[in-house]
Amino acid sequence: MSSPVVGVLAVQGDVREHLRALEESGAHAIAVRRPEEVERVDGLVLPGGESTTMDKLLRAFDLQQPLRERIARGMPAYGSCAGMILLADKVLDSTTDQQTIGGLDVTVRRNAFGRQVDSFETDLTMSGVDGAPIRAVFIRAPWVEAVGPAVEVLATVPDGPAAGRVVAVRQGSLLATSFHPEVTGDHRIHRFFVTEILRR
């Protein structure tokens, strides 16, 4: 079976880390910055970064509509941190004009854990990902505050002040995490996306 082509949305953010994680997970990874590139991919990763900046660039460079259409037609997508915000149908603590691509029936709260001094890393377990706990890195991260009926909760914060908060979800072919597996060198979540969701 040939490798699936997976795009990484490359208007801003930690694109390179996701490209590498995807390549090491058996995908052919390409950067996506233009509408015609959206058509070339079998699936898409929305990276970490600043969600308000990405939203503005998506609209300025005519990417929002093509992405909404592909996701509505069932293209698999995985968003980490800012990428989770972009996939969410509703965002709390957004800027006044902030829009999302949407598709994931969740409400997320932006910068939910606080400012950068509150950013943290911790071990957590995630359903669908076997083996040792995942080292989850939260950087000015959002959390999921409400989920629709079709959404499966895959992980919550294990302890500390935010214990129990939802930080990983899946709805059919859409996957999202509040944290950044791409910065740890542990590619199990990318492999899960490529093998379990894309090749389904």
Partner: peptide, 24 residues
């Protein structure tokens, strides 16, 4: 290095913040 408990201010959290600003 990893420790099971939640930790703030690690090198990964600090450097990771800058990774998220890339292209900006």
């Amino acid at each position: 290095q990893t420790s099971p408990a939640a930790s703030t201010g690690t090198a990964r959290v600090k450097r990771g913040m800058a990774e998220m600003l890339k292209g900006g």
